[in-house]
Design a protein around this nucleic acid. Structure first.
Length: 417
DNA sequence: TCTGGGGTCCTGCGGCTG
DNA sequence: TCTGCAGCCGCAGGACCC
């Protein structure tokens, strides 16, 4: 069960509880991808709609509440979603479109406070402590935001108001869809203690099973456990973190600018692929994609990693740290193919390959070192020229000759023998 | 039933270094 | 020169989140 499903209830909007000390808002768009699609397809309102991968191995990215009532939820395999809800309209994911609407949503938030921390395309934390005098209480600011988003963008959102990020997030989940929920500071602990342990941020399926073996069923049960026992059984960091959360202690502030730590790309094949040449071509494509994103973000990375998932879903990762940071597809591709050759999985049927670059640094600090090699600067210019053409004519306008699709067979048709 | 893609963080281990 | 130790770093894997 996903976190977002845990507390599905009629949307309460409680403004009378008192919001003194509640400076944190968590704003979560309702079924965001579906809501954006429905702006263009209003005739589908009220029907089950699913946005997700339409290929053989697609999963649900977003489902309308009509589809959720049939048991469909995000991350569910599309094949199962279609069985549960055969009449659902299934639409492909269009990240570019959602990013545009997301930017407009964040702009609305920033008219309220500069302290906005986006968590993803469809949710953000806002610290509105400093906006009280100008805009009123946190709860009324939440109502203003909901009205602005609905009025200007035609989509709904839910707002949680609390004294900490974690509780604000639980509060927005409690009032979905299209609601607002305040957890007064004085009621934080009773509010938390009534929840199941799975509601805690950091408790997924695996940790929940381990916790169940220890006995607690609710956050209150967990809070009354010895902190030492939790740390011993779950590890120091997780044990202490969960114990703190269970008593409403969450010192994390709203942070407006968190630098990326890694940039990655991965691809699941429609069918498992054993042919090393096809795998290498996919690694080249992913290297190109990741390098372009690094250059666009004006960062370079020192650690290059490969991810290989076998047909049985077991996954290995291999990484190598380079002498100097790079943002060049040629370097990334050479590293990942070398890791692939050394992985022992050449010729093994694979369902997914991925490329990741980590240990990122701002490129301004790396230019001198990287320009030392003459060959490098020529390649750098070539890759920058590709960036310029791609910006002007779109992705796919230019690329390595080895990625040009041959007319007789499509890339992914070359499946395992 | 059969599991995407993009991330972050934590843990444990081994190697290196002073 | 060898050994023990602590600290750091890189790596691999797992768990989690949206």
């Amino acid at each position: 069960m996903s976190k977002k499903q845990l507390h599905r209830m009629p949307p309460p909007t409680n403004l009378e509880g008192g919001d003194e000390g509640c400076g944190i808002l968590h704003v979560d768009m309702d079924a965001f991808f579906v809501s954006v699609e429905l702006r263009e397809r209003p005739e589908l309102r009220g029907s089950p709609v699913i946005v997700g991968g339409v290929g053989a191995r697609g999963v649900v990215s977003s489902a309308s509440y009509e589809a959720r009532d049939r048991g469909v939820h995000s991350a569910m395999p599309m094949s199962r979603a279609r069985r549960l809800c055969p009449e659902a309209v299934v639409l492909p994911v269009d990240h570019g479109k959602y990013a545009v609407v997301s930017a407009e949503v964040m702009e609305i938030f920033r008219t309220v406070t500069p302290l906005v921390e986006p968590l993803s395309l469809d949710e953000a934390f806002l610290d509105v402590s400093g906006a009280r005098r100008r805009m009123g209480s946190p709860a009324s600011i939440g109502q203003t935001i909901r009205a602005e988003v609905a009025g200007r963008l035609g989509i709904t959102c839910s707002v949680g108001v609390a004294g900490t990020k974690f509780v604000a997030k639980l509060a927005s989940t409690r009032c979905k869809p299209d609601g607002l929920f305040v957890v007064p500071v004085g009621e934080t602990v009773p509010f938390l203690h009534a929840l199941p342990i799975g509601a805690l941020w950091g408790v997924g399926e695996s940790t929940e099973q381990r916790l169940r073996a220890l006995g607690p069923r609710t956050v209150g049960d967990l809070a009354r456990m010895s902190r030492d026992v939790l740390c011993r059984r779950l590890g120091g960091a997780l044990g202490a973190h969960l114990h703190d959360l269970s008593w409403g202690r969450d010192p994390r502030r709203v942070v407006t600018d968190t630098p990326d730590r890694s940039i990655s790309g991965e691809e699941t094949f429609p069918r498992d692929v054993a042919d090393p040449e096809v795998v290498r071509r996919e690694l080249l494509r992913l290297s190109e994609r990741v390098a372009a994103r690094l250059r666009h973000a004006e960062v370079a990375g020192r650690t290059v990693a490969i991810k290989l998932r076998r047909a049985d879903f077991s996954t290995i990762t291999r990484a190598r740290t380079l002498g100097e940071p790079t943002d060049m597809a040629r370097d990334i591709y050479h590293t990942v193919t070398s890791l692939y050759e050394a992985s022992g999985l050449v010729g093994t049927p694979l369902r997914l390959v991925g490329v990741r670059v980590a240990n990122l640094v701002e490129r301004a600090g790396t230019v001198h070192q990287m320009a030392l090699g003459e060959g490098d600067s020529a390649w750098r210019e070539a890759e920058r020229a590709v960036d310029r053409l791609t910006t002007r004519f779109g992705a796919g306008a230019i690329g390595p000759a080895s990625l040009i699709r041959r007319p007789a067979s499509s890339e992914h048709d070359e499946v395992a023998e």
